[in-house]
């Protein structure tokens, strides 16, 4: 196993502030992070590259996070998806558990919270990897 492989994370949120704040925080924890504010660009990116972890909002202006995460799981079932969404859309978010979402984080959240969830997702992947 390539120990130098950094965990690859894609973030999709139509509000740039979320990307702007999450990227440096996750990079500080040693991840490689790409951010997108449109699902179109994010979609074409996952066609080109498989990510270890995808963090996406569910309800965004003019784009559908559910469709995006469905596509992610279809292409790469091993990719762990973390949904970040506002309290109001939490119910919808729970529905998407069926799609194999790893976890939810309600916005607004503390930087530390998302770091923890990402760490857990990473551990799960590593275990799955080791079991193979």
């Amino acid at each position: 196993m390539d120990t130098n492989h950094k965990t690859q994370i894609l973030i999709l949120d139509d509000e740039p502030i979320v990307c702007k704040r999450l990227k440096p925080a996750l990079e500080k924890s040693g991840y490689e992070v790409e951010t997108f504010i449109t699902s179109k660009e994010a979609m074409s990116r996952i066609e080109a590259k498989e990510f270890d972890i995808v963090i996406t909002d569910l309800k965004m202006e003019g784009l559908d996070g559910m469709a995006f995460l469905t596509e992610v799981k279809k292409r790469a079932p091993n990719t762990e998806v973390i949904v970040i969404t506002g309290f109001a859309t939490m119910e919808t978010a729970k529905e998407s558990y069926q799609k194999g979402v790893f976890d939810f984080v309600a916005k607004p959240f503390k930087v530390g919270e998302i770091q923890q969830v990402v760490k857990k997702a990473e551990e799960k992947r590593n275990q799955a990897h080791a079991a193979k």
Partner: peptide, 16 residues
């Protein structure tokens, strides 16, 4: 609290 710097919040939060 959100101005304290610990949280990631977005415009949607402010609106709601």
């Amino acid at each position: 609290d959100k101005l304290g710097g610990d949280y990631v919040f977005d415009r949607q939060y402010i609106l709601s």
